[in-house]
Amino acid sequence: MKSRISMFFVAFIVWCLFNWVPDWQHLVIGGFVSAFVAFMVGDLFITRPHVLMHPSRYWYFFVYYLPMFLWECFKANLDVAYRVLHPRLPIYPGIVKVRTKLTTDTALTFLANSITLTPGTMSVDIDKDNGVLYIHWIDVKTKDVESATRIIVDRFEKVLKKIFD
C-alpha cells in the first residue's frame, strides 16, 4: 500500500512537469491517470518504500554522489576523445571480473550505470547470486580480481551503500 502511494506521487509530479504550467483541469485528469498507474504497476517499481522516507539518503545522493558522477563523466569523455583522435589508437581492451558487496536491485543498477559512464569501463553482465560483475575495460591495467575491484568499484560502492542499503 505504501509503495502504491509513493508511486502515485511520483507519477503525479512527472505528469505536472509534462503539462507545465498546470491548471486545474490538468490536475484533475492527472490525478485519475496517476491513480490508475499506481493501482496497476505500483508494487513492481518500488519494492521497498521505506527507503524513500529518509532525508539523509537524499543528502548523500545530491551532495556526494551527483558531483562525483558528473566529474567522472566529464573525465571519461576527455579520455575517449584522446583515444579516438590519437593516430596510433592506444587501446588494450579486455573483459575483467570484479566483486561487489551490494545486494539490492536498485543499487546494482546504479552501480552498473555509473561504471558504464566512467572512464574506460563498461559493464557487460551482472551475476547477482555471487555478487560478480563482468566489465569490459578499454585499458586493462591488471587481470587480478581484487585489484581490479579496488580500482573500478570501490569509490562508488562506499557512497551507494549509504544511499540504497
Binding site: 569523455n77 575517449v80 583515444r83 579516438v84 581492451p93
Partner: peptide
C-alpha cells in the same frame, strides 16, 4: 568525437563504449 570513435575503433565493445559515453 563519439561518432568518430564508432567509425575508427576495431570491435563491437570498444565502439559501444566510446559511442555511449560521448553521445550521451
Amino acid at each position: 568525437f563519439g561518432c568518430l570513435g564508432l567509425v575508427r575503433l576495431p570491435d563491437v565493445y570498444c565502439r559501444l563504449q566510446a559511442a555511449t559515453k560521448c553521445v550521451t
